[in-house]
Structures are given as C-alpha cells and as structure tokens.
C-alpha cells in the first residue's frame, strides 16, 4: 500500500520553523513568566517533553499554573547506517496536561536496498497525551515525593513496501504504549532524575511495528535519565532506555533482535524560547541480519518554545 507523497520539503519545513521563530521573537511577553530555564525539558523523539529518548513527568514549555505553552522541534539522529528525522509540536497547560504530535522519518538506506526496497523510509506518527498526577518536581526539594505523570502514546506506522514483511512477522503497524514517569529535581545537588516505566510491545520504538508472532503482549520497560545542571542554561546528562525484543526470534532467527538505547547529552537554553540539544547516542543493533554493528551516532535537536 502506497500513500500519497508528503509534500513537505526541507525548505518548506525550514520556512515554517523560521516563521514560528519570528512569531516567538515578536511576542516575548507571552512567555516572560513561567518555570525556570531547563525545567521544561527538551522534546523527546516521540514528541513528549523529557530527555531525548524518554519522556519525563514534567510538562513541556515554561507554562506554569494557569498558563499554556507551545513547543515545536526538529531532531536529527544520524547513525552509522541509518538516519532518523523527527519534527513535532506539543501543547501544555497548567503543568497538568500535555498533548503532543510527532512525525518520524527513518531512512533505511542500504538496509532497504538489501531487502529489495531501495529508498525505503519508515514513517511514523505519534499522538501522545501526558497527565501530571501529583507532586512538583521542582519546588519540593525537602520532600521525597517526585512529580508523577501518566502518559499514553499512540504510534501509527507507514512502512511502505515493508508492510507485507511486518505482517508476515506478526507485527502490527500501529500500537499504543502507556508510561508512568517520576521526575525529581534534587535542587541542592543541581541534579535532575527521571524514571519512566513504559508498557510497550514496540519494535525499534514502533518503526518496525508492534509485537511479533508468539509475542503479542506488552512488557514493562524501565527508562532512566540523569541530568546535571551546570548553570541556568546548560545541562549535561545520560539516559538509558530498555526496550522489548518482540521480533527475536522471528522468521529471520535473531536477525531482528534489538538492544537497549542510551545516550550522553548536553542541552543549552540561551533563553525561554530556544533550546539546542546535542547527544551521542547508541541505539544498539538495528536489523542485525543486514547491519551487524551497533548504531551509534549523533543526535541534534532544536526546540522553540512559546
């Protein structure tokens, strides 16, 4: 099944972002208040506010009580044999609710060619909702209670020519994940900690569908982030995200086995409207039947907030 080609070119995308950016600069009063710098997190690859690979219990943007905020982001993950481009938006309100949308485009490069599908791009849309349940990550450093949030992410994949293969492997092209996140800023130590537990059956985050033959159920996967705030504008940290492995074994034996993900990042927020995040990522093996080496590389993300 082939869908109509998307008409968004990089140029158009750039223009859209530029317009958004100018809009942000033109209306600085709107976001003059709100939470302190860095406390909105950055945009995760799935669109929800958090670290780069994992959602946090913090809601996006700098909107605090009775305020709402918007963020938009573009992210590129350049791996040895693949590339992932993501763009998305998030809206959050009252430090209570966050609604996000992200579109991922995964370039399979030589692997697609090896599978007889040259030029194959896996495209995934993610609609997500996050609800803060309790706690305040920032203002209660004297208490143990972290900020808690419950999130749901619905992922739908357009696998193009790979769809019949995924079907044969028993993987669905859409799936829903639920996660619980706890975030705490240890203010006296300038350290932010997040732990997320995700119920998922996504293969490579959903880019290879959800579940596999004989492995239909969700499993609980932990994700952790640690960030050290160096100053008001810069944070460095690390993340680890455990993943299910529902296509291992498959028709291809262990040729589709997957690994956990981790990264080391630095985030810079010169002001409340812009943040830049760079990271070294290790996404483990991706389709080792074709590419046997670990997929390490660079992650770069730009977020505009409003």
């Amino acid at each position: 099944m082939r869908t109509a080609p998307r008409r968004t070119t990089p140029l158009r995308r750039g223009l859209a972002i530029l317009c958004f950016g100018l809009g942000v600069l033109a209306a600085p009063a709107l976001a003059a208040s709100g939470k302190p710098l860095l406390t909105g997190g950055v945009s995760s690859i799935d669109g929800a506010a958090g670290g780069g690979l994992t959602p946090w219990a913090l809601t996006g943007s700098y909107a605090t009580a009775n305020e709402s905020g918007l963020t938009a982001f573009i992210t590129r993950v350049a791996l040895q044999d693949y590339a992932l481009d993501v763009r998305g938006v998030a809206w959050s309100w009252n430090e209570r609710l966050e609604l996000s949308f992200a579109r991922q485009d995964f370039d399979t490069r030589a692997t697609g060619t090896a599978l007889g599908l040259p030029g194959l791009h896996l495209k995934q849309d993610i609609v997500a909702l996050k609800l803060r349940l309790a706690g305040d990550a920032i203002l209660d450093p004297d208490r143990w209670q972290p900020q808690w949030a419950l999130g749901i992410e619905h992922k739908s994949l357009d696998a193009d020519g790979l769809t019949p293969t995924l079907r044969a492997l028993g993987a669905d092209t859409s799936g829903t994940e639920v996660y619980l996140s706890a975030t705490k800023l240890l203010l006296a130590q300038s350290v932010l900690v997040n732990a997320t537990l995700r119920a998922t059956r996504a293969n490579q985050n959903g880019l290879l569908g959800h579940g596999g033959t004989g492995q239909r159920h969700h499993s609980l996967q932990p994700e952790v982030s640690l960030a050290w705030l160096l100053n008001r504008r810069v944070a460095v940290g690390a993340e680890y995200r455990a993943k299910p492995d529902k296509l291992n074994p498959s028709l291809l034996g262990d040729g589709l086995r997957e690994d956990d993900w981790w990264d080391l990042f630095v985030a810079w927020t010169p002001n409340k409207h812009v943040s830049l995040t760079a990271a070294y990522v290790d996404l483990g093996r991706i389709v080792p039947a074709v590419q046997t080496r670990r997929q390490t590389g660079a992650y770069l993300s730009l977020q505009l907030a409003y």
Partner: peptide, 11 residues
C-alpha cells in the same frame, strides 16, 4: 539511579 535519588533527597 535509585541509590542516587535516595541518597541525595532528604540530605
């Protein structure tokens, strides 16, 4: 991670 949190919080 847990140890880091438990060790630091409260102190």
């Amino acid at each position: 991670t847990l140890a880091a949190v438990l060790g630091a919080a409260g102190a």
